[in-house]
Design a protein around this nucleic acid. Structure first.
Lengths: 288, 288
DNA sequence: CACCCCGTATAAGGAACGCTGATCGACCGT
DNA sequence: ACGGTCGATCAGCGTTCCTTATACGGGGTG
Protein backbone atom coordinates (compact mmCIF):
# COMPACT_ATOMS: atom_id res chain seq x y z
CA UNK A 1 0.00 0.00 0.00
CA UNK A 2 2.35 2.65 -1.25
CA UNK A 3 1.06 6.15 -0.48
CA UNK A 4 1.69 7.01 -4.13
CA UNK A 5 -0.72 4.33 -5.21
CA UNK A 6 -3.21 5.58 -2.66
CA UNK A 7 -2.85 9.10 -3.92
CA UNK A 8 -3.48 8.11 -7.51
CA UNK A 9 -6.41 6.02 -6.38
CA UNK A 10 -8.15 8.89 -4.63
CA UNK A 11 -7.42 11.13 -7.59
CA UNK A 12 -8.91 8.64 -10.01
CA UNK A 13 -11.93 8.20 -7.78
CA UNK A 14 -12.40 11.94 -7.46
CA UNK A 15 -12.11 12.66 -11.17
CA UNK A 16 -13.81 9.43 -12.19
CA UNK A 17 -11.24 9.06 -14.91
CA UNK A 18 -7.86 7.40 -15.32
CA UNK A 19 -6.72 9.79 -18.02
CA UNK A 20 -7.73 12.92 -16.13
CA UNK A 21 -5.98 11.67 -13.02
CA UNK A 22 -2.87 10.96 -15.06
CA UNK A 23 -2.85 14.52 -16.36
CA UNK A 24 -3.33 15.97 -12.88
CA UNK A 25 -0.63 13.83 -11.32
CA UNK A 26 1.86 14.24 -14.15
CA UNK A 27 1.89 10.56 -15.03
CA UNK A 28 0.95 8.80 -18.21
CA UNK A 29 -2.40 7.10 -18.40
CA UNK A 30 -0.58 3.80 -18.50
CA UNK A 31 1.12 4.43 -15.19
CA UNK A 32 -2.20 5.23 -13.55
CA UNK A 33 -3.73 2.08 -14.90
CA UNK A 34 -0.82 0.09 -13.50
CA UNK A 35 -1.11 1.82 -10.15
CA UNK A 36 -4.74 0.86 -9.80
CA UNK A 37 -4.03 -2.67 -10.96
CA UNK A 38 -1.23 -2.95 -8.40
CA UNK A 39 -3.47 -1.73 -5.60
CA UNK A 40 -6.25 -4.10 -6.56
CA UNK A 41 -3.85 -7.01 -6.72
CA UNK A 42 -2.29 -6.05 -3.41
CA UNK A 43 -5.62 -5.80 -1.63
CA UNK A 44 -7.12 -8.73 -3.44
CA UNK A 45 -10.31 -6.98 -4.45
CA UNK A 46 -11.46 -4.76 -7.31
CA UNK A 47 -11.63 -1.15 -6.20
CA UNK A 48 -13.11 0.53 -9.25
CA UNK A 49 -15.59 -0.28 -11.92
CA UNK A 50 -14.39 0.87 -15.31
CA UNK A 51 -16.69 2.52 -17.75
CA UNK A 52 -17.99 4.31 -15.89
CA UNK A 53 -15.14 4.70 -13.43
CA UNK A 54 -16.64 4.49 -9.96
CA UNK A 55 -15.55 2.97 -6.66
CA UNK A 56 -16.84 -0.47 -5.72
CA UNK A 57 -18.02 -1.21 -2.20
CA UNK A 58 -14.47 -2.10 -1.22
CA UNK A 59 -13.25 1.00 -2.98
CA UNK A 60 -15.63 3.20 -1.03
CA UNK A 61 -14.23 1.70 2.11
CA UNK A 62 -10.70 2.42 1.02
CA UNK A 63 -11.62 6.00 0.25
CA UNK A 64 -12.74 6.51 3.82
CA UNK A 65 -9.29 5.50 4.98
CA UNK A 66 -7.23 7.13 2.27
CA UNK A 67 -8.07 10.72 3.07
CA UNK A 68 -7.10 10.64 6.74
CA UNK A 69 -4.13 8.48 5.89
CA UNK A 70 -2.67 10.88 3.37
CA UNK A 71 -3.49 13.76 5.63
CA UNK A 72 -1.60 12.22 8.51
CA UNK A 73 1.29 11.52 6.23
CA UNK A 74 1.44 15.17 5.26
CA UNK A 75 1.10 16.14 8.90
CA UNK A 76 4.00 13.93 9.90
CA UNK A 77 6.21 15.33 7.17
CA UNK A 78 5.28 18.91 8.08
CA UNK A 79 5.78 18.23 11.74
CA UNK A 80 9.29 16.96 11.29
CA UNK A 81 10.13 19.65 8.79
CA UNK A 82 9.06 22.30 11.29
CA UNK A 83 11.64 21.08 13.75
CA UNK A 84 14.43 21.57 11.26
CA UNK A 85 13.29 24.70 9.46
CA UNK A 86 13.96 28.19 10.71
CA UNK A 87 11.06 29.86 12.51
CA UNK A 88 9.02 31.45 9.81
CA UNK A 89 8.37 35.11 9.34
CA UNK A 90 4.92 36.54 9.75
CA UNK A 91 2.05 34.65 11.23
CA UNK A 92 -0.73 32.65 9.67
CA UNK A 93 -3.97 31.91 11.44
CA UNK A 94 -6.88 29.80 10.30
CA UNK A 95 -10.25 30.13 11.95
CA UNK A 96 -13.83 29.01 11.61
CA UNK A 97 -16.19 31.95 11.01
CA UNK A 98 -17.96 31.53 14.33
CA UNK A 99 -14.64 31.35 16.17
CA UNK A 100 -13.88 34.96 15.32
CA UNK A 101 -15.48 36.62 18.29
CA UNK A 102 -14.93 40.39 18.57
CA UNK A 103 -12.38 39.88 21.30
CA UNK A 104 -10.36 37.58 19.10
CA UNK A 105 -10.33 40.02 16.22
CA UNK A 106 -9.15 42.79 18.51
CA UNK A 107 -6.20 40.72 19.64
CA UNK A 108 -4.74 40.16 16.19
CA UNK A 109 -1.48 41.94 15.60
CA UNK A 110 -1.95 44.76 13.11
CA UNK A 111 0.61 43.84 10.48
CA UNK A 112 2.20 40.77 9.06
CA UNK A 113 -0.69 38.49 9.88
CA UNK A 114 -2.53 36.30 7.41
CA UNK A 115 -5.99 35.28 8.49
CA UNK A 116 -7.68 32.48 6.64
CA UNK A 117 -11.29 31.53 7.21
CA UNK A 118 -11.95 27.85 6.69
CA UNK A 119 -14.70 25.41 7.41
CA UNK A 120 -14.50 24.06 10.92
CA UNK A 121 -13.33 20.60 10.01
CA UNK A 122 -10.55 21.82 7.75
CA UNK A 123 -8.78 23.70 10.49
CA UNK A 124 -7.10 20.82 12.31
CA UNK A 125 -5.86 19.59 8.95
CA UNK A 126 -4.51 23.00 8.01
CA UNK A 127 -2.66 23.26 11.29
CA UNK A 128 -1.35 19.72 11.14
CA UNK A 129 -0.03 20.01 7.61
CA UNK A 130 1.66 23.27 8.41
CA UNK A 131 -0.49 25.37 6.10
CA UNK A 132 -1.03 27.70 9.04
CA UNK A 133 0.72 28.08 12.36
CA UNK A 134 -2.30 28.57 14.56
CA UNK A 135 -5.91 27.54 14.29
CA UNK A 136 -9.06 28.61 16.04
CA UNK A 137 -11.72 25.95 16.29
CA UNK A 138 -15.05 26.28 17.97
CA UNK A 139 -18.02 24.19 18.80
CA UNK A 140 -20.57 23.30 21.40
CA UNK A 141 -19.42 21.80 24.65
CA UNK A 142 -20.43 21.45 28.23
CA UNK A 143 -18.93 24.31 30.24
CA UNK A 144 -15.15 23.88 30.67
CA UNK A 145 -15.20 20.67 28.66
CA UNK A 146 -12.64 20.51 25.89
CA UNK A 147 -13.83 20.25 22.31
CA UNK A 148 -13.67 16.99 20.44
CA UNK A 149 -11.25 17.33 17.62
CA UNK A 150 -10.63 14.78 14.91
CA UNK A 151 -7.18 13.54 15.74
CA UNK A 152 -5.41 13.92 12.44
CA UNK A 153 -2.24 14.51 14.35
CA UNK A 154 -1.07 15.18 17.88
CA UNK A 155 -2.22 18.77 18.27
CA UNK A 156 -2.19 20.92 21.35
CA UNK A 157 -5.24 22.95 22.31
CA UNK A 158 -5.76 25.82 24.69
CA UNK A 159 -9.10 27.29 25.64
CA UNK A 160 -9.73 30.82 24.41
CA UNK A 161 -13.29 31.82 25.16
CA UNK A 162 -16.59 30.43 26.24
CA UNK A 163 -19.85 32.22 25.74
CA UNK A 164 -23.53 31.36 25.81
CA UNK A 165 -25.30 30.22 22.67
CA UNK A 166 -28.44 31.67 21.18
CA UNK A 167 -30.99 30.56 18.67
CA UNK A 168 -31.48 33.00 15.85
CA UNK A 169 -35.18 33.24 14.95
CA UNK A 170 -36.95 35.39 12.37
CA UNK A 171 -38.59 38.35 14.08
CA UNK A 172 -42.07 36.97 13.46
CA UNK A 173 -41.43 33.52 14.82
CA UNK A 174 -43.88 32.33 17.49
CA UNK A 175 -41.05 31.64 19.92
CA UNK A 176 -39.16 34.84 19.20
CA UNK A 177 -40.59 36.65 22.19
CA UNK A 178 -39.56 34.08 24.73
CA UNK A 179 -36.81 35.21 27.09
CA UNK A 180 -35.06 31.86 26.82
CA UNK A 181 -35.43 28.54 25.05
CA UNK A 182 -34.67 24.90 25.54
CA UNK A 183 -33.15 23.13 22.59
CA UNK A 184 -35.47 20.22 23.02
CA UNK A 185 -38.40 22.49 22.18
CA UNK A 186 -36.83 23.18 18.83
CA UNK A 187 -35.85 19.67 17.81
CA UNK A 188 -38.76 19.51 15.41
CA UNK A 189 -38.08 22.87 13.81
CA UNK A 190 -36.25 23.31 10.56
CA UNK A 191 -32.62 24.28 10.97
CA UNK A 192 -30.22 25.85 8.55
CA UNK A 193 -27.56 23.33 7.61
CA UNK A 194 -24.38 25.34 7.33
CA UNK A 195 -21.38 23.22 8.26
CA UNK A 196 -18.99 25.85 6.95
CA UNK A 197 -20.38 28.95 8.59
CA UNK A 198 -22.58 27.90 11.49
CA UNK A 199 -22.50 25.06 13.94
CA UNK A 200 -23.11 21.71 12.26
CA UNK A 201 -26.37 20.00 13.05
CA UNK A 202 -24.52 16.87 14.08
CA UNK A 203 -23.17 18.75 17.08
CA UNK A 204 -26.68 19.78 17.99
CA UNK A 205 -27.91 16.25 17.92
CA UNK A 206 -24.90 15.04 19.89
CA UNK A 207 -25.64 17.40 22.78
CA UNK A 208 -29.22 16.34 22.87
CA UNK A 209 -29.02 12.71 21.88
CA UNK A 210 -32.18 13.20 19.92
CA UNK A 211 -32.78 12.47 16.31
CA UNK A 212 -34.44 15.72 15.43
CA UNK A 213 -33.02 18.98 14.12
CA UNK A 214 -34.11 18.39 10.59
CA UNK A 215 -32.17 20.41 8.03
CA UNK A 216 -33.80 22.99 5.84
CA UNK A 217 -31.75 24.98 3.37
CA UNK A 218 -28.12 24.08 3.14
CA UNK A 219 -25.53 26.82 2.96
CA UNK A 220 -22.02 25.88 1.91
CA UNK A 221 -20.25 29.20 2.25
CA UNK A 222 -18.30 30.54 5.19
CA UNK A 223 -19.92 33.93 5.50
CA UNK A 224 -21.70 34.53 8.76
CA UNK A 225 -23.64 37.54 7.52
CA UNK A 226 -25.24 35.47 4.80
CA UNK A 227 -26.17 32.84 7.33
CA UNK A 228 -27.81 35.30 9.67
CA UNK A 229 -29.65 36.86 6.74
CA UNK A 230 -30.97 33.45 5.75
CA UNK A 231 -32.21 32.90 9.27
CA UNK A 232 -33.84 36.32 9.32
CA UNK A 233 -35.54 35.52 6.04
CA UNK A 234 -37.15 32.50 7.63
CA UNK A 235 -35.23 29.79 5.83
CA UNK A 236 -34.52 28.02 9.07
CA UNK A 237 -33.19 28.44 12.58
CA UNK A 238 -29.52 28.83 13.37
CA UNK A 239 -27.62 28.20 16.56
CA UNK A 240 -24.85 30.72 17.07
CA UNK A 241 -22.65 32.14 19.79
CA UNK A 242 -24.51 34.95 21.47
CA UNK A 243 -22.16 37.64 20.16
CA UNK A 244 -22.67 36.53 16.58
CA UNK A 245 -26.43 36.22 16.91
CA UNK A 246 -26.95 39.64 18.46
CA UNK A 247 -28.03 42.59 16.41
CA UNK A 248 -29.15 40.84 13.25
CA UNK A 249 -31.77 42.95 11.50
CA UNK A 250 -35.08 41.17 11.17
CA UNK A 251 -34.11 38.44 13.56
CA UNK A 252 -34.16 37.80 17.27
CA UNK A 253 -31.52 36.01 19.29
CA UNK A 254 -32.89 33.95 22.16
CA UNK A 255 -30.50 32.45 24.70
CA UNK A 256 -30.46 28.70 25.14
CA UNK A 257 -30.75 27.48 28.70
CA UNK A 258 -31.09 23.76 28.30
CA UNK A 259 -28.99 21.71 27.82
CA UNK A 260 -26.24 23.68 29.49
CA UNK A 261 -23.91 24.11 26.58
CA UNK A 262 -21.54 26.91 25.73
CA UNK A 263 -19.87 27.99 22.55
CA UNK A 264 -16.23 27.29 23.13
CA UNK A 265 -13.28 28.53 21.11
CA UNK A 266 -9.94 26.81 21.33
CA UNK A 267 -6.57 27.66 19.96
CA UNK A 268 -4.86 24.73 18.33
CA UNK A 269 -1.27 24.34 17.21
CA UNK A 270 1.12 21.59 16.28
CA UNK A 271 4.41 22.79 17.67
CA UNK A 272 4.97 25.24 20.47
CA UNK A 273 4.47 28.67 18.92
CA UNK A 274 7.37 31.09 18.78
CA UNK A 275 7.72 34.71 17.91
CA UNK A 276 4.59 36.46 16.74
CA UNK A 277 2.58 33.26 17.06
CA UNK A 278 3.55 32.89 20.71
CA UNK A 279 2.55 36.44 21.48
CA UNK A 280 -0.84 36.01 19.87
CA UNK A 281 -1.38 32.70 21.58
CA UNK A 282 -0.66 34.18 24.97
CA UNK A 283 -2.91 37.14 24.31
CA UNK A 284 -5.79 34.97 23.20
CA UNK A 285 -5.58 32.52 26.04
CA UNK A 286 -4.98 35.20 28.64
CA UNK A 287 -1.61 33.82 29.70
CA UNK A 288 1.01 36.02 31.30
CA UNK B 1 7.73 8.54 3.20
CA UNK B 2 7.40 4.93 2.27
CA UNK B 3 5.63 2.93 4.99
CA UNK B 4 8.45 0.41 4.81
CA UNK B 5 10.92 3.08 5.76
CA UNK B 6 8.64 4.18 8.54
CA UNK B 7 8.38 0.64 9.80
CA UNK B 8 12.12 0.15 9.90
CA UNK B 9 12.46 3.51 11.59
CA UNK B 10 10.15 2.64 14.44
CA UNK B 11 11.83 -0.73 14.79
CA UNK B 12 15.25 0.84 14.98
CA UNK B 13 14.01 3.38 17.49
CA UNK B 14 12.39 0.68 19.60
CA UNK B 15 15.42 -1.60 19.63
CA UNK B 16 17.91 1.26 19.68
CA UNK B 17 20.00 -0.66 17.20
CA UNK B 18 20.34 -0.85 13.44
CA UNK B 19 21.63 -4.40 13.47
CA UNK B 20 18.94 -5.71 15.79
CA UNK B 21 16.27 -4.07 13.70
CA UNK B 22 17.74 -5.62 10.58
CA UNK B 23 17.56 -9.07 12.14
CA UNK B 24 13.98 -8.56 13.26
CA UNK B 25 12.86 -7.25 9.89
CA UNK B 26 14.76 -9.77 7.81
CA UNK B 27 16.95 -7.19 6.13
CA UNK B 28 20.68 -6.74 6.13
CA UNK B 29 22.17 -4.07 8.34
CA UNK B 30 23.11 -2.22 5.20
CA UNK B 31 19.52 -1.99 4.05
CA UNK B 32 18.40 -0.62 7.39
CA UNK B 33 21.14 1.97 7.32
CA UNK B 34 20.03 3.02 3.85
CA UNK B 35 16.41 3.16 4.95
CA UNK B 36 17.17 5.55 7.75
CA UNK B 37 19.42 7.63 5.52
CA UNK B 38 16.66 7.84 2.91
CA UNK B 39 14.12 8.94 5.49
CA UNK B 40 16.44 11.56 6.90
CA UNK B 41 17.21 12.89 3.45
CA UNK B 42 13.55 12.92 2.52
CA UNK B 43 12.52 14.81 5.63
CA UNK B 44 15.57 17.01 5.62
CA UNK B 45 16.46 16.43 9.25
CA UNK B 46 18.41 13.87 11.26
CA UNK B 47 16.08 11.50 13.05
CA UNK B 48 18.48 9.42 15.11
CA UNK B 49 21.70 9.92 16.93
CA UNK B 50 24.12 7.07 16.31
CA UNK B 51 26.13 5.60 19.07
CA UNK B 52 24.07 5.51 21.10
CA UNK B 53 21.11 5.09 18.76
CA UNK B 54 18.34 7.35 20.04
CA UNK B 55 15.71 9.52 18.39
CA UNK B 56 16.42 13.23 18.02
CA UNK B 57 13.74 15.81 18.77
CA UNK B 58 12.50 15.53 15.20
CA UNK B 59 12.68 11.77 15.49
CA UNK B 60 10.54 11.79 18.62
CA UNK B 61 8.01 13.79 16.71
CA UNK B 62 8.00 11.32 13.87
CA UNK B 63 7.52 8.46 16.30
CA UNK B 64 4.32 10.05 17.53
CA UNK B 65 3.00 9.98 14.00
CA UNK B 66 4.39 6.67 12.86
CA UNK B 67 2.43 4.44 15.19
CA UNK B 68 -1.04 5.72 14.31
CA UNK B 69 -0.03 5.92 10.69
CA UNK B 70 1.04 2.30 10.41
CA UNK B 71 -2.00 1.29 12.42
CA UNK B 72 -4.34 3.07 10.06
CA UNK B 73 -2.58 1.50 7.14
CA UNK B 74 -3.20 -1.93 8.59
CA UNK B 75 -6.77 -0.96 9.33
CA UNK B 76 -7.37 0.13 5.76
CA UNK B 77 -5.94 -3.08 4.38
CA UNK B 78 -7.99 -5.19 6.77
CA UNK B 79 -11.10 -3.22 6.04
CA UNK B 80 -10.88 -3.74 2.32
CA UNK B 81 -9.88 -7.36 2.71
CA UNK B 82 -12.98 -7.95 4.85
CA UNK B 83 -15.19 -6.86 1.99
CA UNK B 84 -13.74 -9.45 -0.29
CA UNK B 85 -13.16 -12.34 2.10
CA UNK B 86 -15.81 -14.85 3.02
CA UNK B 87 -17.48 -14.27 6.39
CA UNK B 88 -15.30 -15.99 8.93
CA UNK B 89 -16.25 -18.89 11.08
CA UNK B 90 -16.47 -18.54 14.82
CA UNK B 91 -16.45 -15.23 16.61
CA UNK B 92 -13.70 -13.23 18.22
CA UNK B 93 -14.33 -10.59 20.84
CA UNK B 94 -11.89 -8.29 22.54
CA UNK B 95 -12.81 -6.51 25.72
CA UNK B 96 -11.34 -4.37 28.45
CA UNK B 97 -11.52 -6.10 31.83
CA UNK B 98 -13.97 -3.59 33.28
CA UNK B 99 -16.20 -3.91 30.23
CA UNK B 100 -17.04 -7.48 31.12
CA UNK B 101 -20.04 -6.87 33.31
CA UNK B 102 -21.91 -9.98 34.46
CA UNK B 103 -24.66 -9.34 31.96
CA UNK B 104 -22.18 -9.26 29.12
CA UNK B 105 -20.58 -12.53 30.14
CA UNK B 106 -23.98 -14.18 30.29
CA UNK B 107 -24.75 -13.16 26.73
CA UNK B 108 -21.74 -14.82 25.15
CA UNK B 109 -22.56 -17.79 22.97
CA UNK B 110 -21.38 -20.98 24.64
CA UNK B 111 -19.18 -22.40 21.92
CA UNK B 112 -17.00 -21.17 19.12
CA UNK B 113 -16.22 -17.87 20.74
CA UNK B 114 -12.77 -16.51 21.42
CA UNK B 115 -12.64 -13.86 24.11
CA UNK B 116 -9.52 -11.77 24.38
CA UNK B 117 -8.93 -9.35 27.23
CA UNK B 118 -6.85 -6.36 26.21
CA UNK B 119 -5.97 -3.01 27.63
CA UNK B 120 -8.62 -0.44 26.87
CA UNK B 121 -6.65 1.50 24.29
CA UNK B 122 -5.68 -1.57 22.32
CA UNK B 123 -9.23 -2.54 21.56
CA UNK B 124 -10.06 -0.07 18.80
CA UNK B 125 -6.81 -1.04 17.12
CA UNK B 126 -7.60 -4.74 17.40
CA UNK B 127 -11.02 -4.19 15.86
CA UNK B 128 -9.73 -1.91 13.13
CA UNK B 129 -6.96 -4.26 12.04
CA UNK B 130 -9.34 -7.18 11.96
CA UNK B 131 -7.65 -9.07 14.79
CA UNK B 132 -11.10 -9.41 16.32
CA UNK B 133 -14.59 -8.92 14.95
CA UNK B 134 -16.13 -7.15 17.90
CA UNK B 135 -14.74 -5.06 20.70
CA UNK B 136 -16.11 -3.91 24.01
CA UNK B 137 -14.73 -0.63 25.24
CA UNK B 138 -15.69 1.15 28.41
CA UNK B 139 -15.01 4.35 30.19
CA UNK B 140 -16.46 7.22 32.12
CA UNK B 141 -18.98 9.44 30.44
CA UNK B 142 -21.85 11.73 31.24
CA UNK B 143 -25.09 9.74 31.16
CA UNK B 144 -26.05 8.80 27.57
CA UNK B 145 -22.97 10.51 26.19
CA UNK B 146 -20.94 8.41 23.79
CA UNK B 147 -17.40 7.47 24.71
CA UNK B 148 -14.46 9.20 23.10
CA UNK B 149 -12.58 6.73 21.06
CA UNK B 150 -9.28 7.34 19.34
CA UNK B 151 -10.20 7.36 15.68
CA UNK B 152 -7.77 4.90 14.25
CA UNK B 153 -10.35 4.04 11.65
CA UNK B 154 -14.02 4.63 10.94
CA UNK B 155 -15.56 2.37 13.55
CA UNK B 156 -19.19 2.00 14.51
CA UNK B 157 -20.23 1.97 18.14
CA UNK B 158 -23.39 0.93 19.88
CA UNK B 159 -24.15 1.46 23.53
CA UNK B 160 -24.34 -1.68 25.63
CA UNK B 161 -24.70 -0.78 29.29
CA UNK B 162 -24.44 2.09 31.67
CA UNK B 163 -24.05 1.69 35.37
CA UNK B 164 -23.01 3.84 38.32
CA UNK B 165 -19.41 4.04 39.39
CA UNK B 166 -18.03 3.39 42.84
CA UNK B 167 -14.82 4.15 44.62
CA UNK B 168 -13.15 1.12 46.09
CA UNK B 169 -11.71 1.93 49.53
CA UNK B 170 -9.93 -0.26 52.05
CA UNK B 171 -12.30 -1.24 54.83
CA UNK B 172 -10.51 0.91 57.36
CA UNK B 173 -10.44 4.06 55.29
CA UNK B 174 -11.87 7.17 57.00
CA UNK B 175 -14.34 7.73 54.19
CA UNK B 176 -15.38 4.09 53.89
CA UNK B 177 -18.49 4.52 55.99
CA UNK B 178 -19.92 7.35 53.94
CA UNK B 179 -23.03 6.43 51.98
CA UNK B 180 -21.80 8.32 48.92
CA UNK B 181 -18.82 10.35 47.81
CA UNK B 182 -17.96 13.20 45.54
CA UNK B 183 -14.90 12.73 43.38
CA UNK B 184 -13.66 16.18 44.25
CA UNK B 185 -13.24 15.07 47.85
CA UNK B 186 -10.82 12.41 46.70
CA UNK B 187 -8.72 14.40 44.27
CA UNK B 188 -5.91 14.59 46.80
CA UNK B 189 -5.96 10.91 47.65
CA UNK B 190 -3.59 8.38 46.14
CA UNK B 191 -5.07 6.39 43.30
CA UNK B 192 -4.02 3.11 41.78
CA UNK B 193 -2.73 3.70 38.29
CA UNK B 194 -3.92 0.72 36.30
CA UNK B 195 -4.51 1.68 32.68
CA UNK B 196 -4.88 -1.93 31.66
CA UNK B 197 -7.32 -3.17 34.26
CA UNK B 198 -9.04 -0.17 35.82
CA UNK B 199 -10.09 3.19 34.53
CA UNK B 200 -7.13 5.36 33.62
CA UNK B 201 -6.51 8.36 35.83
CA UNK B 202 -6.56 10.62 32.80
CA UNK B 203 -10.26 9.91 32.43
CA UNK B 204 -10.79 10.84 36.04
CA UNK B 205 -9.05 14.16 35.60
CA UNK B 206 -10.96 14.84 32.39
CA UNK B 207 -14.33 14.51 34.10
CA UNK B 208 -13.28 16.78 36.89
CA UNK B 209 -11.00 19.20 35.14
CA UNK B 210 -8.78 19.14 38.17
CA UNK B 211 -5.14 18.36 38.35
CA UNK B 212 -5.31 15.98 41.25
CA UNK B 213 -5.68 12.21 41.36
CA UNK B 214 -2.06 11.53 42.06
CA UNK B 215 -0.98 8.02 41.16
CA UNK B 216 0.26 5.59 43.74
CA UNK B 217 1.24 2.08 42.75
CA UNK B 218 1.08 1.31 39.06
CA UNK B 219 -0.38 -1.99 37.92
CA UNK B 220 0.21 -3.06 34.36
CA UNK B 221 -1.77 -6.26 34.22
CA UNK B 222 -5.32 -6.78 33.05
CA UNK B 223 -6.64 -8.74 36.01
CA UNK B 224 -9.45 -7.09 37.91
CA UNK B 225 -9.17 -9.33 40.94
CA UNK B 226 -5.57 -8.26 41.46
CA UNK B 227 -6.58 -4.65 41.17
CA UNK B 228 -9.34 -4.94 43.75
CA UNK B 229 -6.97 -6.82 46.05
CA UNK B 230 -4.44 -4.01 45.73
CA UNK B 231 -7.10 -1.49 46.64
CA UNK B 232 -8.20 -3.60 49.62
CA UNK B 233 -4.59 -3.77 50.76
CA UNK B 234 -4.50 -0.01 50.93
CA UNK B 235 -2.17 0.63 48.00
CA UNK B 236 -4.51 3.24 46.61
CA UNK B 237 -8.05 3.96 45.62
CA UNK B 238 -9.67 2.60 42.49
CA UNK B 239 -12.66 3.79 40.54
CA UNK B 240 -14.70 0.95 39.15
CA UNK B 241 -18.14 0.17 37.80
CA UNK B 242 -20.39 -0.63 40.72
CA UNK B 243 -20.78 -4.29 39.77
CA UNK B 244 -17.02 -4.80 39.72
CA UNK B 245 -16.44 -2.95 42.96
CA UNK B 246 -19.09 -4.82 44.94
CA UNK B 247 -18.22 -7.71 47.19
CA UNK B 248 -14.48 -7.28 47.39
CA UNK B 249 -13.24 -8.76 50.67
CA UNK B 250 -11.56 -6.21 52.87
CA UNK B 251 -12.78 -3.30 50.81
CA UNK B 252 -15.82 -1.10 50.63
CA UNK B 253 -17.44 0.22 47.48
CA UNK B 254 -18.91 3.69 47.86
CA UNK B 255 -21.07 5.14 45.07
CA UNK B 256 -19.97 8.34 43.40
CA UNK B 257 -22.62 11.03 43.17
CA UNK B 258 -20.69 13.97 41.85
CA UNK B 259 -19.86 14.62 39.06
CA UNK B 260 -22.69 12.72 37.43
CA UNK B 261 -20.73 10.17 35.50
CA UNK B 262 -21.57 6.64 34.59
CA UNK B 263 -19.52 3.68 33.54
CA UNK B 264 -20.47 3.11 29.95
CA UNK B 265 -19.77 0.07 27.81
CA UNK B 266 -19.93 0.25 24.07
CA UNK B 267 -19.74 -2.35 21.38
CA UNK B 268 -17.44 -1.40 18.54
CA UNK B 269 -17.01 -2.96 15.13
CA UNK B 270 -15.56 -2.09 11.77
CA UNK B 271 -17.95 -3.73 9.34
CA UNK B 272 -21.53 -4.65 9.92
CA UNK B 273 -21.44 -7.89 11.88
CA UNK B 274 -22.85 -11.03 10.33
CA UNK B 275 -23.59 -14.49 11.58
CA UNK B 276 -22.64 -15.21 15.16
CA UNK B 277 -21.24 -11.72 15.57
CA UNK B 278 -24.53 -10.15 14.55
CA UNK B 279 -26.45 -12.29 17.01
CA UNK B 280 -24.16 -11.35 19.86
CA UNK B 281 -24.24 -7.71 18.92
CA UNK B 282 -28.01 -7.67 18.94
CA UNK B 283 -28.17 -9.47 22.26
CA UNK B 284 -25.71 -7.09 23.89
CA UNK B 285 -27.31 -3.94 22.64
CA UNK B 286 -30.81 -5.16 23.29
CA UNK B 287 -31.90 -4.91 19.67
CA UNK B 288 -34.73 -7.00 18.33
C1' DC C 1 -23.73 -0.62 -40.20
C1' DA C 2 -19.15 0.92 -40.70
C1' DC C 3 -16.30 4.10 -38.88
C1' DC C 4 -14.08 7.01 -35.65
C1' DC C 5 -13.11 8.82 -31.21
C1' DC C 6 -12.29 8.28 -26.56
C1' DG C 7 -10.72 5.77 -22.73
C1' DT C 8 -8.65 1.72 -20.46
C1' DA C 9 -5.57 -2.51 -20.66
C1' DT C 10 -1.44 -4.71 -22.07
C1' DA C 11 3.42 -5.37 -23.94
C1' DA C 12 8.14 -4.13 -24.18
C1' DG C 13 12.13 -1.43 -23.18
C1' DG C 14 15.06 1.50 -20.39
C1' DA C 15 16.11 4.10 -16.27
C1' DA C 16 16.09 4.21 -11.45
C1' DC C 17 15.52 2.08 -7.23
C1' DG C 18 16.54 -1.13 -3.49
C1' DC C 19 18.69 -4.99 -1.62
C1' DT C 20 22.93 -7.81 -0.76
C1' DG C 21 27.71 -8.70 0.13
C1' DA C 22 32.03 -6.69 1.06
C1' DT C 23 34.78 -3.27 3.10
C1' DC C 24 35.95 0.74 5.91
C1' DG C 25 36.11 3.61 10.03
C1' DA C 26 35.00 4.56 14.75
C1' DC C 27 34.32 3.29 19.36
C1' DC C 28 34.59 0.05 23.38
C1' DG C 29 36.26 -3.42 26.38
C1' DT C 30 39.84 -6.55 27.33
C1' DA D 1 47.59 -2.61 21.34
C1' DC D 2 44.08 -5.25 19.58
C1' DG D 3 39.97 -7.85 18.52
C1' DG D 4 35.00 -7.17 18.41
C1' DT D 5 30.91 -4.67 17.50
C1' DC D 6 28.29 -1.38 15.18
C1' DG D 7 27.12 1.82 11.63
C1' DA D 8 28.43 3.98 6.94
C1' DT D 9 29.71 3.40 2.32
C1' DC D 10 30.46 1.21 -2.19
C1' DA D 11 29.85 -1.87 -6.16
C1' DG D 12 26.90 -5.00 -8.33
C1' DC D 13 22.70 -6.95 -9.64
C1' DG D 14 17.86 -8.01 -9.72
C1' DT D 15 13.54 -5.82 -9.49
C1' DT D 16 10.49 -2.21 -9.78
C1' DC D 17 8.39 1.56 -12.10
C1' DC D 18 7.54 4.66 -15.63
C1' DT D 19 7.33 5.61 -20.66
C1' DT D 20 6.25 4.61 -25.43
C1' DA D 21 3.65 1.96 -28.41
C1' DT D 22 -0.22 -0.77 -29.38
C1' DA D 23 -4.40 -3.53 -28.59
C1' DC D 24 -9.21 -3.70 -27.12
C1' DG D 25 -13.92 -2.15 -26.21
C1' DG D 26 -17.94 1.01 -26.03
C1' DG D 27 -20.66 4.93 -27.71
C1' DG D 28 -21.70 8.31 -30.89
C1' DT D 29 -21.97 9.80 -35.87
C1' DG D 30 -22.38 9.84 -40.76
Amino acid sequence: MDPHLLRTYVTVARLASFSEAARELGYTQSAVSQHIAALEQDLGAPLLTRRPVAPTAAGERLLEHAGPLLLRLDAARADVARMAAAPQQGLTLAAAPTALAPGVLAALPPAGTTLRVLARDEIPAAVATGAVELGLVDGLAAPSDPLRLPDVAPLTTRGVTEEPVSVLLPAGHPLARRPALRLGDLADARWLDAPGAGLPLAQLRATDGGRGFRPSLRYDGTDLRTLTALAAAGHGLALLPASAAAGVPGAVAVPVTEPRVVHRVELVYASVPRGAAAALADTLTGAS
